[in-house]
Nucleic acid binder design. Structure first.
Lengths: 172, 172, 172, 172
DNA sequence: TTTT
DNA sequence: TTTT
């Protein structure tokens, strides 16, 4: 009925970009969000929050954010489950990002483009059914590290504990 | 750096109230938040989001909310980990509620008191060090179902998969 | 760069539905949001927050909410200005609702349809350019009070202090 | 009942720090929050959102933020009214910040201290009744521009259109 | 399994 | 009355 999350933190690693069998892009990344208070031992801790973003913004995230980047996320909490390798059900709570905001100053790391662009915003590209956007088998033009992105039928999310990603996981 | 969550949904069960060894109250509950869109099969799904709240508001939650209650939560996402019974580390993502809003109409279920009271708000009772409030070993005056609340040294969170709760888990 | 608002409160009046010259629906309403704390005199006060919503959700709001309805709003803060009748510029801060959640129990007032429907959600109807939706000159099928809705060239927002509304006010 | 705002944007001017007659600090500032979409003319616009923060965090804001600083605000919307100089009531909608996050990189402007400190967080200093904090007549130790801060009985908010600020305006 |  |  209402479900809203806003985060600002730093990526713990480079984002991970995958494609579903039908060619839809998904990026996943973890945000380290430092707490504003200290624990009983006087240490400042952080929450490590897993985030997922789909379609064009996923490719923007993969192209413009990297380990250590300061980013803002606006989205919602999503829970899902899948069968773990040991046979029992694994429950996941993560943030489905609807937009990701790049908060690094423009000249901070050199390989980033314009400042403060919002990666989920233009409503029509965000819309799965809108316009003429077809992400099927599409490859990003710009690619930070030139790797060949894994397609999901070639074992996506292998190292993130999720065995299989399908088009059924699409948020809308 | 920034971490904010707002949810409105219904409790999937009665809230679960525990006490730490030093007597601090903790309530946990799960909110079912219906999605506003349907999946590929045209079904409306829900996210099941685990929430935790501490101190006096925890007791209010235990006393005034029950399975099916419509409630709003304002808080933040918290991640933590503990050693599972099988020896490997379990990672948990949940919402630390800072305030819980009761959204049921006053006359809906009969045993609820005033409408729309906010359970975390009065800052001074919320403050662990503030004023003369001492929740240590305190028992709620009103008690919906008159059970004798488990103290944590008597196996708290036993059925929720967490073996041990300590005062170190206090959010501030 | 980031701008997110979540509110739950009650409508102070029936919502006000207008149409731009090109036929786009706009509803405006005020939410009374009770504060969770009391002032120096021990009184509980409220904030009265003006909200605006466009297109199909505007018509849903007009059809399903009325004075006193409990509603949730997810949106963003918008500022705008116009020339007042006394010649000087008037500055307005209001909430642009992206979705409105009806939180009244289903049987509470009789003339409401299903419970907890979300009025802004289905992304494709929300999209101004999406699909085959054309709201131009469209009239709501269901109409709570059967009035003939004012079109904006017939002096819309006359009683709300804004002299003129145009298609330029569309949020996207 | 629920009222939550999260913003990230840039200060349009240096923050304005005042004191109530009883010595409580208040800072006000405007955040320019760029929209993520463009208007009909293809221009990217911004919302200019007035924010207010009280007590110790107000002094931190005054000391560490200035025109152009990137900042995050977590708070709520507040409405209030006062009698304008022309005799008629003026209605104000603004954001009451509960915490302000400094998002500028540490070495960006030279005169800022540590990175990403949160200015409203430590709950006990935030609490008006908590601990031994007494802001009465207190002057900030660090002062960016060494001006002598106006006290409110010496015409505070004179240039912001509000004639008088009193301790009754304290949010809690 | 974590970021500055 | 607006910021990068």
């Amino acid at each position: 009925m209402m479900n809203r999350v806003v985060l600002v933190g730093r990526l713990t690693k480079d984002p991970d970009l995958r494609y579903t069998p039908s060619g839809v892009a998904v990026a996943s990344f973890t945000l380290a969000v430092n707490r504003t208070f200290t624990n009983q031992q006087g240490e400042r801790e952080a929450d490590f929050i897993n985030c997922v973003i789909w379609r064009k913004p996923a490719e923007n995230v993969a192209n413009f954010l990297k380990k250590g980047s300061l980013a803002g996320v606006d989205g919602r909490i999503q829970t899902r489950s899948y069968d773990g390798q040991d046979g029992k059900r694994v429950y996941v709570t993560e943030v489905l990002a609807e937009s990701v905001q790049f908060l690094e100053p423009r000249n901070s790391s050199g390989n980033n483009r314009s400042d403060n662009m919002n990666y989920g915003a233009p409503r029509e590209q965000d819309n799965p059914f809108g316009g003429s956007n077809n992400y099927q088998n599409q490859r990003p033009q710009t690619n930070r590290n030139n790797q060949d992105y894994t397609r999901v039928d070639e074992d996506p999310f292998a190292n993130s504990g999720q065995i299989d990603i399908s088009d059924d996981d699409l948020p809308f």
